[in-house]
Nucleic acid binder design. Sequence first.
RNA 1: GAGGAAGUGGCGGAAUUGGCAGACGCGCAUGACUUAGGAUCAUGUCUCUUAUGAGGUGAGGGUUCGAGUCCCUCCUUCCUCACCA
Length: 923
Amino acid sequence: MTETYQPHAIELKWQKRWEDSQLYRSKVDWSRPKHYALTMLPYPSGDLHIGHWFAMTPSDARARWMRMKGYNVLFPMGFDAFGLPAEQAAISRNIHPWKWTYANIERMREQLRSMGAMFDWEREAISCTPEYYQWSEWFFKQFYEHGVAYRGSALVNWSESLQTVLANEQVIDGKDERTGQPVAQKLMEQWFFRITQYADELLNFAPLDWPESIKIMQTNWIGKSEGARAAFHTEQGGHAIEIYTTRPDTLWGATFMVLAPEHDLVEKITTGDQRAEVAAYIENAARATEIERMIEDREKTGVFTGAYAVNPVNDERVPIWIADYVMITYGTGAIMAVPAHDQRDFEFARAHNLPVRVVIQPDAADEPLRGDTMSAAYDGPGVMVNSDAMNGSQSTTAKGRKNPAISRVIDWLEATGKGEEAVNYRLRDWLISRQRYWGGPIPMIFDGDEIVPVPDEDLPVVLPEDVDFVPTGRSPLTYHEPFFKVDETRRRETDTLDTFMCSSWYQLRYLSPDCHSAPFDAEEAAYWLPVDVYTGGAEHAVMHLLYTRFFTKALRDIGVFDDAAAAMRRHGRAPDGVFDEPMTVLRNQGQVLGGERQGDFVLCGGRRVGERLLADRVEVVDWNQVPAGFDGVFGELAHRTENVLHVDMAGITQFVDVQPDARIIIPDIPGENNVNQLRHHLDIQRMSKSKGNVVNPDELVERYGADVVRCYLMFNFDWQKGGPWNENNIKGPQGWLHDLWEIALAGAPDVRGDPTAERDIERKLHQTIAVINRGLEEFSFNTAIAEQMKFKNALKAALRAGAIGAEAWRSVMNRLIRLLAPFAPHIAEEIWARLGWEFSVHTQPWPEYDAEAAREEMVDLVVMINGKPRETIGVDVDITRERAQELALASGAAQRSLAGNPPKRAIFIPGRNGTDPKVNIVV
RNA sequence: GAGGAAGUGGCGGAAUUGGCAGACGCGCAUGACUUAGGAUCAUGUCUCUUAUGAGGUGAGGGUUCGAGUCCCUCCUUCCUCACCA
């Protein structure tokens, strides 16, 4: 009897030993290739979620693999520790944000340690410490001094519920993404970063190996469009109304103009008799939340200002309206309205009896379009009409200069000085001030009308601890006189930095968290940057991941990386492009969802025999729709074992035997249904405390051990997709590790071994190495583990047959345990030690894959008839085309199909990469 | 409305990227061992069919010697953005 596998003692023992021996400390070593693996740092909410395990432990396995492959790997961890929850805990539970945050960090560090990950804790960075935010402040100053940061007055997203402004990216559907409460537009003086200046460079994803979906989301977010700018002038007063359009070829079709209600010209141009109506409309629009303004198919409302403008291209007089379908935040906040060729303008024109003039006539229309009879705007291709000198130009569906009509009009506008080519972005500058306490102070001082930065020697501006957290709707710092009062005339900025600013550069602080003279050590940066592989959730697609790219580019342009570039050159490496992007490769993990147990609601009819119902009819119905007088069994299907249903009937389990010929009716699934299609759980949902389906990783570790939990998470999901939690499946990885344990502890077999079987195991081991390599390379952790399980099954069978001798056993085990090490680091280390090999398995080289050793001698030749596999013939791996075709044509399947006729073709598909050769015979 | 991802057994998911669909695991079935089993071991497990054989990756069409994979149309689900001028 071997000792049973007891994960606990083993895991704690090795975690301590690894820490004591500094196994995971990463040091700069210019003689070795580096690999900077980074996984998104957690917010210290107080408890590690299973999602953290799902994100981090596969990343850890990959980092470990890189390390064994010979890379000098940096895999750091830290905490994104500023943010609202700490402040809310302070208010609701009367505990100071420092205390709350640090207690949470203490706890989460322990939880993180229980993963057995190779985090280098000496490089830990915590964004809320003065040592850290000193440099957030310093970066702010650098940005300010280089014109990247500026103070501006702008319409900003004001969250009434949070009493703070929010970045555009934090507003979803007109609601604050945290609380789901409506956000209003408010004109405020705030600090901004000029991210828009980098819009074009941010659109260049060529240097990045990132998921397509993230690149598309960022591209859409930046929202670059090409078109033209032109100014219409008001008839009275000659005010210029700037408009931006992507369709300058329709300029001659502008029959009115629309300004956003917030547009600052509205006040100036509105005529006396329209004043009351306009004022009422503006007030209404301001009160309406963005949500109300965005309701689909909403009638297009608006009012006439009484003013007219002159269309610069044809000097036509057009009325100026205001309407809330024009957004102040996009373009110039004003549009030329071309109802014939823009659906929104069309709807507005029809609602308010405004003229519609066709200026693009479809080429192949039977009858020309007419503005008074058309039922929808026409935005297809055609030829320009009613457009003076431009008539006859071809307008295609292409955008910008690629459209001949647009290109021609732009040239004309520029030649006549009536307008110019222009690009427009949806992206707005990054609003970074927050009216909150728990964030990095903005290091600026108001001195009368002047704003000056805090001198470098006075950094960091330290966040005071003795503040009052009574919620008043303003940051507690605004009441803290010792903080804001510099002297009689000077006052400190009391707004704090958006936490996304702190997380935009943490990958740099990890390089040297104790560096006092600079945000990071140049030598470290020269060696480690950029991050080679970044893993984390896709929810950061347009916030963190866009900000950190911008941040890196801005720092590069300011010269923050100059010393690091010089250091690279000293070491003989070219710094070209190294500091352009923060993370070269990005992979997103999916989300682990909670499995909610809610079954089909079934009605079962039949005859009763004792306690059981022998059902001849089972119908799935809508929840609780039981016909009156129904005397069978009905309720939620709680469980099904083959044809036996456990039906939960008002809390009591009823057993139903479904008869073989029973009718099963499932309305969602048409046609014949069988008992297997009855679902006893569905409706998979996001984990949340209110649903009671949260999985606690600590409990799992307690029950199964960290290695089993790691392997379960890697094995049972497509990592990049995620999926529903189903703990039943944990038995798979558990049994696998258990078997490996038993095989290892049983020791080397006392048999001579069979050379053929030993060679076969050796071959399978090499094949396994290839699949694991590929799996880890491509973040396909499930297939990597599946292949290991497969090998274990083969090894177990060979051992049981007594076919493996002691020497072969030791040789196989030595490599097998190394292959296991990245996935299950503790058990691998324990077995490694027990088999008498030197500490640590994690510093061993990764087993070499030898293609020659993996090569099969015999393979199956697949005989296909018209593309369908019909027969296999065992053949030599080196079989020639001619011989394979000969064998295939002689096979029984071919003889039967051909029936004496010659084949039309016989196509030989050689076996490559371990696939079997095939011959497809076309009859 | 725009853009994107996906749809494969009872379930989680594989398929070397156009070459034997369902690897690996869960569940389930049968058997063994057991006082017992929600333990362990063995065997089986896409569907129909008598072995042979035939069909099968949301539906329908197409390209190809060959399609889960590529193209077109449609259906469903999820995600992102959303009156973007």
